[in-house]
Simulated assay, not measured.
Amino acid sequence: MTENTPVTATTRVALVTGGSGGIGRAVAERLAADGFAVGVQYAGNKNGAGEVVAAITARGGQALAVAGDVADERDMGAVFDAVEAEFGGIDVVVNTAGIMILAPIAELALDDLDRMHRTNIRGTVVVAQQAARRLRRGGAIVNFSTSVTRTRLPTYGAYVASKAAVEGMTLVLARELRGKDITVNAVAPGPTATPLFLRDKDDTAVAAFAGAAPLERLGQPEDIAETVAFLAGPARWINGQVLFANGGLA
């Protein structure tokens, strides 16, 4: 926090899960640049979350790092409590937290399936429950899917299944929040240059992904953050949708 930028009654507040790195960090910093006070949720990367908060406050913004497991309802209740206590309420929740484990379906370790289910599906539900109960009017919930729900690449089957569940619940929740003036959408990135995506890929594989889209490059975390900022701000007539931010890949 910085003394010269106090939270006021008109300050909008965002909570970004998985905000300590990758797309989550870009989202947190973009929303802060748009004037949001930002809660940066993290699970294990305390140093990364601290770096995000430091980067935001160095630019005159307001941010708070809060630890918690997105799939644990008690943890997330405490995370929401902490952000509300610091900033006075919450207007936007961006649910970037997720894990990706790749394997052919026939060879997939079921423990890995359970891990993805817990974080990607249960975690989305837990966060969505808190958001649905707490967001102020005019708010927005932004979930995260993946463009692989369209491209359907081999080895992505279990991951796609977890993200297809997120897409399915997004429209349902939007309809369930009728009358609350809260939008619910999902962003489905294509190949994006994050540590999660680049892990275990050689230069040839990365080049193939980069060349697949008509724009002939990988997405950058800032590209995805721009999409989130649109949904979190002016896009009040977009509701229950999945936006594929992938440069024309699919």
Score class of each variant (00 low, 15 high):
88 G>Q: 10
105 I>H: 10
195 P>T: 12
97 A>M: 04
69 D>N: 13
173 L>D: 06
209 F>K: 02
95 N>C: 12
113 L>A: 15
225 A>P: 02
240 G>T: 05
218 L>H: 04
158 A>K: 09
62 Q>D: 09
103 A>S: 15
92 V>S: 08
240 G>M: 09
162 S>G: 15
215 L>V: 13
109 A>V: 02
22 G>Q: 12
246 N>A: 04
169 M>A: 01
195 P>V: 14
49 A>M: 11
135 L>G: 08
79 V>A: 09
125 V>K: 00
85 A>S: 14
108 L>V: 01
122 R>A: 02
235 A>V: 08
70 V>F: 05
139 G>P: 07
177 L>R: 11
153 L>F: 14
43 A>S: 08
69 D>F: 01
20 S>G: 11
173 L>M: 09
2 T>N: 15
208 A>Q: 11
32 A>C: 01
5 T>H: 14
207 A>P: 12
246 N>T: 02
27 V>G: 03
84 E>Y: 02
5 T>K: 13
173 L>Y: 04
42 Y>Q: 02
3 E>M: 12
132 A>F: 05
155 T>R: 11
24 G>Q: 05
201 K>F: 10
95 N>K: 05
175 R>S: 12
18 G>Y: 03
44 G>E: 12
92 V>R: 06
35 G>S: 08
202 D>P: 06
133 R>S: 04
101 I>S: 04
72 D>A: 07
189 P>S: 11
77 G>L: 09
153 L>E: 15
13 V>Y: 11
71 A>Y: 03
144 F>A: 10
195 P>A: 13
183 T>G: 03
55 A>K: 04
111 D>E: 14
114 D>P: 02
170 T>W: 01
171 L>C: 09
52 V>R: 00
248 G>D: 06
217 R>D: 03
240 G>R: 11
26 A>E: 07
160 V>P: 03
9 A>L: 14
76 M>N: 09
236 R>C: 08
9 A>T: 15
186 A>Q: 02
44 G>A: 12
87 F>E: 08
73 E>W: 08
117 H>G: 00
23 I>C: 11
61 G>D: 05
177 L>I: 04
